[in-house]
């Protein structure tokens, strides 16, 4: 395998890893809680892209909807439905976890009147 083929075969994973690390950096380095949640969403988006790219097949494979009258179905003609199913549910769960996180952040804001982490952790910050 030449160098070029290696890069062409793997570069999609590297893009998702860069995206995932952007989200990871936002989660661990940012002080603002909302920015952390946005970082978590970027992280989850990278994982969703990674899973969907696993299901792709080269050689003219199409969406996994079996054409009518196709008695002997060849699995190589249709892309893998399994990652799409898993990520379909993961997207909806992502939205609901985002909602719960926003609700918790709203409660934190009501108690501390700030969303900056270092100000929340200061002693006596509670109002």
């Amino acid at each position: 395998m030449t160098n070029m083929e290696f890069i062409i075969g793997k570069y999609n994973y590297w893009i998702y890893i860069v995206l995932m690390m952007i989200g990871f950096y936002a989660m661990i380095a940012k002080r603002n809680l909302v920015k952390k949640i946005v970082g978590m969403n970027i992280f989850q988006t990278a994982i969703i892209l990674f899973f969907v790219s696993i299901g792709s097949k080269k050689g003219g494979a199409t969406i996994p909807i079996i054409r009518a009258g196709d008695e002997a179905v060849n699995a190589a003609q249709y892309i893998n439905p399994l990652p799409h199913v898993l990520m379909l549910t993961a997207i909806v769960v992502m939205v609901s976890t985002f909602g719960v996180a926003m609700a918790l952040i709203l409660m934190i804001y009501r108690k501390y009147r700030t969303l900056e982490e270092d100000e929340i952790l200061k002693p006596g910050a509670e109002t």
């Binding site: 075969g9 793997k10 994973y13 299901g55 792709s56 097949k57 080269k58 699995a75 893998n80």
Partner: peptide, 14 residues
Amino acid sequence: DWGDTTSPANAHVS
């Protein structure tokens, strides 16, 4: 590799 039809994810149960 991307689009590998013989990868475990594409060959096992799908």
